[in-house]
Amino acid sequence: MLLLVAPAALVLVCFQIIPIFIGMNASFRDWSLVNPAKTWIGLKHYRDVLSDPVFLYTVLPNTFMLMVSSVVLSLASGLGLALLLNKPFFGRPVVRTVILLPLTVAPVITATMIRWSFNDQFGVITNLLSVLGFPEIGWLSDKWPSFSLIILTDVWIWAPWFTIIILAALQGLPREPFEAAQIDASGKWRTFTHITLPMLKPVIIVCVLIRSIDAFRTFDQVWILTGGGPARETEVFSVYAYVEAFVHLDYGKGAAAAGLGALIMLVVGIGLYKLVNRLMEVSR
């Protein structure tokens, strides 16, 4: 029986668990890529990261802001889309197919598309907006527009995921409670809030958990869209660690940041897991 997990466990240990320890080891040393003296310097890197204003006041807030806004917005739009697709209408198969695009196209390409569509001079959407009379926005040159673009891209990618899962759940719901609600004179909105949502709650909670964990490590979209700029203002945690290690060539500091991220995620992950279990209890 051990044989069944052995290969999986072996790969996991060698290429995920051991590297994490190597990374921790590196984070305690002056392990610069250009100057591999590798002197033991204790917690210095951690102190550096934790006293780095970029990390504290830009990266951390950005990361959590991206996590929360992306999850909330994709959940809301994904849920709306699922409700729409739950009713038959002309062209529904087309919509169902089209919403798979974001899930199959590489985030790198998606980010490229968005970046091109919002190009300051030649972007189709930029031009469309100015034709419609909106004031000009430096989409990729100011912090908040760039950050909204990152969020938008994330929502574009992940809303369909919520849609597909919630749609499957919707179609699996028993019909009778809705009929009983109809007889009980429950209006459309009240049925949604009092019957549909509570029945979807378990699915939604699990989706939010998975998405939140994944949203924390967002890298591709941010890297392609803004590269963390302008002036490191849209950096999120993964980008920060990468930039410290490979752009500033301070490997130890990057590893320390990555380690801190893992630690935060462990706490957040366990917390969310506990929360989910609690919510599931209540919602049963």
């Binding site: 409670p177 009929e179 009983a180 609600a181 049963r284």
Partner: peptide, 15 residues
């Protein structure tokens, strides 16, 4: 102005 009892009761599970 009717009321109905369903085979699988159709109670609202979360209430």
């Amino acid at each position: 102005d009717i009321a109905m009892v369903f085979q699988n009761y159709a109670l609202y599970q979360h209430m």
